[in-house]
């Protein structure tokens, strides 16, 4: 087995009396799409926030790319490590054009957390402009490159946000409910897109409600219930696992 991109060891987290995460151990393999599913309140979002260093666990460790500690790092440090994130409600730059939206993360990737280049002309940034156009094309939005991002539909905003992450070629991409609040048509489009990126070999963690999405794109699925991981396996194993069916799916056939 290759080295895990992200390693979560013995993580516990409680809010007051509520134990949100119990002794979580998880290894995310390189090049795999790892889905985390579970009913509402199972601790999915808490786990995600621990993964990106936003929440400090009570005990345990989260390490990235073979031993780099993640806990307590600020968002830009996490991103510079190679971890990009798609939010539950799309976070884009609503006042900028789509092209600019995609160029900004490329600049951050190239320039680091802070770089002073007051007089470099944007017109001379042909490489990044070209790259941004290609990435926009890969999510099917090249025609809208000069539009202002704030006027996009929710599904388009999500695709744009995905493009913003893709241009950085992150080692790990975290997707928090990428199809939340989307119409069926948009969901299918997103699944196609996720499958396409999967071929590129990017490691991903997907948190998702929609079973259709999860079983379409995931290599490995972990099931979270009441703050603990009750099963981890391939989609087929999870589908046939009686514990999972009992705890999460309420005994219903999948």
């Amino acid at each position: 087995m290759s080295k895990p991109v992200l390693k979560i060891s013995n993580v516990n987290k409680s809010f007051g009396g509520l134990q949100a995460l119990r002794d979580i151990n998880l290894e995310i393999e390189k090049g795999k799409v790892h889905a985390i599913i579970g009913p509402n309140g199972a601790g999915k979002s808490t786990l995600l926030n621990v993964c990106v260093g936003l929440l400090k666990p009570d005990s345990g460790s989260v390490t990235f790319n073979g031993g780099i500690n993640v806990i307590g790092k600020s968002p830009h440090e996490i991103n510079q490590m190679g971890l990009a994130r798609v939010f539950q409600t799309p976070e884009i730059f609503p006042d900028l054009s789509l092209l600019e939206n995609v160029m900004i993360p490329a600049f951050s990737k190239r320039d680091g957390a802070f770089h002073l280049q007051l007089f470099r002309s944007l017109a001379s940034e042909t490489k990044i402009t070209q790259e941004a156009k290609e990435v926009l094309a890969s999510v099917g939005m090249e025609a809208k490159a000069d539009e202002i991002a704030g006027s996009l539909s929710r599904g388009d905003k999500r695709r744009l946000e995905l493009a913003m992450c893709l241009i950085q070629h992150p080692d790990l991409l975290l997707l928090d409910e990428p199809t939340a609040g989307m119409a069926r048509h948009d969901t299918n489009k997103t699944i196609e897109l996720l499958k396409k990126i999967k071929e590129g070999g990017m490691t991903k963690i997907i948190i998702e409600h929609d079973m259709h999405v999860v079983f379409s794109v995931a290599d490995t699925i972990s099931v979270l219930a009441q703050g603990a991981i009750i099963a981890t396996g391939t989609p087929d194993e999870i589908r046939g696992n009686p514990i999972v069916q009992e705890a999460y799916l309420g005994g219903a056939e999948l």
Partner: peptide
Amino acid sequence: SNQHRMRYTGSD
């Protein structure tokens, strides 16, 4: 436009 996104995009 969105300082939150800017931080998660890797810029301090």
